[in-house]
Design a binder for these strands. Structure first.
Lengths: 136, 136
DNA sequence: CCGGATCCCACACGATACTG
DNA sequence: CAGTATCGTGTGGGATCCGG
């Protein structure tokens, strides 16, 4: 497993916060858009194969149409997702990942993988924290 | 560069959305807590070295005391950050990354690195999207 | 089938003042 | 110095109805 320190992986660290303002900080700018409640889920789904609107809706049952539309639109705007309309009757729309989206998903999927592998450790930490808070 | 498909990196993909509910989905549960406006910035700072409260405040000038306190508390609750109080006078508090936090930061730093390297591409995609929207 | 338009609320977040 | 308490606001997000 790769355990290099992040120092040599990050081009600029603290410069991103103090030197640059919020709009020009790449970390803030990119992260804030993929940090939404549904963005990572949709990217995860589209990493498998292209999906149609209704398929995505059924994949994530507790998303509203509004948020699915908005999330897909934001992901498309940032260049991660491509939207293709098929002029059938009734019309169908297919969403797929762009090369840029795939290149983002490569590191992002590692965070998701970490989440699944370390979920229990996080939950245990929360439980311990809450209990010592009550005790103190 | 590692260009493996994410399929063999993710243990479960679509199961995370439909089969599991929102609370039991590791991706949702972990991501929702590091998706805050400041969480990644604080983790980025603490990946360098431990910092005291006031130092973090000066590092990220546009964060309010309230959000710094709350973000650090949430990160501590999830087990990513350790909080050590030095009973000096006046008291000082030092925040540092735990092993769990470092293990999370390893993949997370790759997303941040991606953000810095591809920021211009994202901005260009946004610009193109907005212009074709106006034209259409 | 794929959304847009509207209304509404909860909560993330900010500003300020105050305490050990 | 390192927070807590209180209040106010912007926006992410849900519910519902409407249109192509």
């Amino acid at each position: 497993m790769d355990q290099r320190t992040p120092a040599d992986l990050l081009p600029a660290t603290t410069e991103c916060m103090s030197e640059w303002n919020a709009d020009n900080c790449p970390v803030r700018d990119v992260m804030s858009h993929i940090a939404g409640k549904w963005s990572t889920l949709i990217l995860l789904a589209l990493s498998e194969r292209p999906y149609r609107f209704g398929e995505l809706r059924r994949l994530v049952p507790d998303i509203s149409q509004r948020m699915l539309t908005q999330t897909l639109r934001d992901l498309q705007r940032d260049g991660y997702v491509a939207r293709v309309v098929f002029p059938t009757k009734p019309p169908s729309v297919e969403y797929s990942m762009t090369p840029l989206g795939r290149s983002l998903f490569a590191p992002l999927s590692r965070v998701m993988r970490w989440a699944t592998e370390n979920h229990e450790a996080v939950r245990a930490a929360r439980l311990a924290f809450d209990q010592t808070e009550l005790a103190g």
